[in-house]
Design a protein around this nucleic acid. Structure first.
Lengths: 85, 85
DNA sequence: AAATATTTGTACGTATGTATG
DNA sequence: GCATACATACGTACAAATATT
């Protein structure tokens, strides 16, 4: 997990960018589970609420799907590049 | 079980203090099982997640050990007083 | 041996309060 | 006022390990 720095970019945006990068680079393939919220919490030191904001943004963008009690997973079909830029 | 009050002290901290007290007073001796999470839930009305936070703090302090499917037990060797103050 | 109950483990969902910039 | 961020607290669901019947 890359560093989340204190700075002008909101931490949740930095985290979203890191995860998005792992998905779009193929490091996380469709169907792969994302790190759990607690794992991200431990890896980054961020509060769960902050992590959830980042995850929600990826979900809103259709990059991942989330299932209660299971986890978040890379969406099988990703939206065309350019949808969110 | 003492009362868990609504107030400035987080409920999980109050519960942890109650359990810690029972251990350090000898009411719960080394090897003794703690009340199960569900028992504490019924006795206090707290949510299980909240109870688990209190239990984790005691475990982090080395006061208890926990085993899935069995329960939590007072540690045989307790850390010296003052370790966590 | 098998089914059931108990107990802890994991994981997300939701909401509120507090504090800061 | 609003967005960000953290802490707390409750809810729901299911998995895994152990104990009991």
């Amino acid at each position: 997990m890359e560093e989340i720095k204190d700075g002008p970019v909101a931490k949740w945006r930095q985290l979203a960018a890191i995860l998005r990068n792992r998905i779009e680079s193929g490091d996380l393939a469709p169907g792969d589970p994302l790190p759990s919220e607690v794992e991200i919490e431990q890896a980054t030191g961020l509060a769960r609420g902050t992590i959830r904001v980042a995850i929600r943004s990826l979900r809103d963008d259709g990059l991942i799907v989330t299932a209660q009690g299971k986890g978040s997973f890379v969406a099988d079909v990703r939206p065309p590049a350019g949808s969110g830029e």
